[in-house]
């Protein structure tokens, strides 16, 4: 799906008075969300940065109807809302969960998995800033290897939990990864997801200047570097078919990738490992493992002969 920037709605989605930090990727993402969906949607927001970004009641800095909900209940409250709308004859209202990585991969994971398995007709967007930023940068299961947080002072020892892959394993209708560094790609994915009935999941990488320790002017650039280094491949899984997003395809070739050090050195959270080649090597190996998995996914979720052969041999 191509997105014509000229045709994107100009209506303001983020208002003065919202409480986001400078360079916040979540407000960038929200703008794109509104551009993609227009007016006929409601948001369900479990605890996280976006609970605060709305600003102080009775006003709101986000131009959308929002149901704020407890941390673990993003997907379940949204599933209920959708059923509620359907039961009173309002089948057209889109219900969107806007949850952080903790609300998605940690405390909210059970409800997410439940809604995915039931194929509830909601769009779940995980805004992944790779830690509990709202409470002061504590590690989550989606914090990457080596990253400093206030609960991993010498760097996290475990790799990032791969939630999009787990969602694919649920066999849902649609899974995509996106980055705030590539707005039109994200908008196109949201638009496509909104046309599918059933459970849709989009994983939006959201580089956080405060938690990742970088210049707030660089949010978009770091969002692009995550893709260009191969750390965060952009792809779509749709009805059993997997494909890399066009702008990420070239990074399948390792020689086309930007060296990961270019990404790491811009971020204070990696400061302690910049001069440790063995640590950099671990991250490079991780990138290799990610692309190995992409290769497997491309083969496994391919309607062509190759997939049948592969699955037959398992």
């Amino acid at each position: 799906m191509t997105v014509n920037i000229k045709r994107i709605p100009k209506k303001k989605f983020l208002m003065p008075g919202n409480a986001a930090c400078p360079g916040c990727p979540e407000t960038m993402g929200m703008r794109y969300l509104k551009m993609a969906l227009g007016d006929n949607f409601v948001m369900v927001i479990p605890a996280g940065c976006s609970s605060v970004i709305q600003g102080i009641a009775p006003r709101s800095g986000i131009y959308a109807p929002i149901l704020n909900i407890v941390f673990a209940a993003g997907a379940s409250a949204a599933a209920g809302m959708k059923a509620g709308f359907e039961s009173i004859g309002r089948k057209d209202v889109e219900v969107v969960v806007w949850a952080g990585d903790g609300g998605t991969g940690d405390i909210g994971f059970q409800a997410l998995s439940g809604a995915a398995e039931r194929d509830d007709d909601i769009l779940y967007i995980c805004v992944d800033n790779e830690a509990y930023m709202n409470t002061g940068i504590q590690r989550s299961s989606l914090t990457p290897y080596g990253a400093w947080t206030t609960t991993t002072w010498t760097g996290k020892r475990e790799h990032k939990k791969n939630i999009p892959l787990i969602m694919i394993a649920h066999g849902v209708k649609y899974v995509a990864t996106a980055s705030v560094g590539y707005p039109t790609d994200f908008i196109a994915k949201v638009k496509k997801a909104s046309q599918i009935r059933g459970f849709k999941y989009i994983h939006l990488l959201a580089p956080c200047p405060v938690g990742w320790r970088f210049d707030p002017a660089l949010t978009g650039e770091i969002g692009q570097l995550a893709v260009k280094t191969g750390l965060f491949p952009l792809y779509e899984y749709e009805n059993g078919k997997f494909q890399l997003s066009p702008l990420a395809r070239r990074y399948k070739d390792p020689s086309k990738r930007v060296p990961v050090i270019e990404y790491l050195k811009l971020q204070g959270r990696y400061k302690h490992l910049i001069n440790k080649p063995e640590e950099i090597k671990k991250i490079e190996e991780y990138i290799e493992s990610i692309w190995y998995m992409i290769d497997v996914l491309e083969k496994a979720f391919n309607p062509k002969e190759e997939a049948r052969k592969l699955l037959g041999s398992l």
Binding site: V42, V44, L67, I69, V70, A72, A73, A75, S76, A77, A78, A79, G80, M81, K82, A83, G84, F85, S87, I88, R90, V93, Q110, A111, S113, G114, E117, R118, D120
Partner: peptide, 21 residues
């Protein structure tokens, strides 16, 4: 809605009720 936990059960009916059901 046959949920996966009671936490979700109440959240789901609460969501439905918030939508007007």
């Amino acid at each position: 809605i046959r949920v996966e936990s009671e936490h979700s059960a109440l959240a789901a009916v609460y969501g439905a009720a918030s939508a007007g059901a």
